[in-house]
Nucleic acid binder design. Structure first.
Lengths: 177, 177
DNA sequence: TGTACATCAGTGAACGCGCGTTCACTGATGTAC
DNA sequence: TGTACATCAGTGAACGCGCGTTCACTGATGTAC
């Protein structure tokens, strides 16, 4: 039966939230629309009142996942504490907590490769997220703009790769970042 | 109808070769057994004379993909030309040719994340390939063993990440490796 | 070396299953009077 | 403010489709005499 506008809005957010979690945890192709709806406490038939296609949900979930990751870092940069914010971010990124919980973690580490096989709009979302992350990381580094951007890219590569390897079970010796 | 032992062996190699190509090009979940068999010039019903499950094919294809990547580098190391071999390897790894052709390229860049959702034996294959690659890269670097291994890990992270980003369409400014 | 027969690689149709998507239906919500 | 009705979010069953896997069948291969 019909629900109020507020209830529908809440349901919409739940769907995106669960999708963002499940896609990162299990992969996009492996997670069905029915599973997402069930996790949100709904039946799968109602999905198409919220999204035209699964692809549209993927794009929304990816945007939400990036927003969650950026939140703390962006706040630190806005407060002028970019360097401290960067240090805390790196510490959390490489933590065993982040490695053990892809569902609430970095969408790049979880989905970057699979997104290469998704629609253009999803790829654009991933591209934008990566670029935004590099910019935010660069804020906390030293040197001129080009050098910082360069260093930020190398840092992101190290971070993402360490987490991907650790999740795949490859033991990595401590590196200095 | 039945074919000779030699013909069967040839077919087996064709299946693994096409699987290694298609899995890297399109992903594992997206590539069906029927598509692999068709690419090998066979009908999909015969697949189970060669492999017990699709998973067994994935493991074989991954091993084959690693073997192809290691070939040149391992030969250079064996000849005592590890440093030159490394340089050539890095040059090829970052080439537009490698970026444009995942089907014949590095299985880590193409499959590392998706393998996280595969069987234990497939994960073990990926793990072993990564470790072997780090060892081979370390051979061409300088310093003591620990420092070389450490540097090799950072190098691999940069290499893989650059290719993943480039394939996702994110333009990366030139970095020095 | 030649013949008779068992083996088994490959064929092509079928299996159950889960996928993304559609649809007739329900009944609370939101609106018009 | 109260009533009558149109709207539409959510339900649950169904759709076609492609997946991994199975199977009865075929006929060339390999073997035993």
């Amino acid at each position: 039966m019909r629900v109020s506008k507020e209830a529908m809005q809440t349901n919409n957010e739940k769907i995106i939230h669960e999708a963002a979690r499940l896609f990162r945890q299990q992969g996009i192709g492996t997670t069905g629309v029915a599973e997402v709806m069930s996790a949100a406490g709904l039946t799968h038939g109602g999905f198409y009142r919220h999204f035209k296609t699964k692809d549209e949900l993927v794009a929304a979930a990816l945007a939400k996942a990036f927003a969650g990751i950026f939140k703390t870092l962006a706040a630190a940069v806005a407060e002028g504490k970019a360097s401290e914010g960067l240090e805390a971010f790196v510490g959390h990124y490489l933590s065993s907590q982040h490695i053990a919980n892809p569902g609430s973690g970095c969408p790049i580490a979880a989905l970057a490769v699979e997104v290469g096989h998704q629609s253009n709009s999803v790829q654009a979302q991933m591209r934008q997220g990566c670029e935004q992350m590099i910019e935010l990381l660069a804020e906390g580094l030293e040197g001129d703009e080009v050098a910082r951007r360069d260093e930020a890219q190398r840092l992101l590569a190290s971070l993402v790769w360490s987490v991907v390897l650790a999740r795949a079970g490859v033991v990595v010796t401590e590196g200095d970042f």
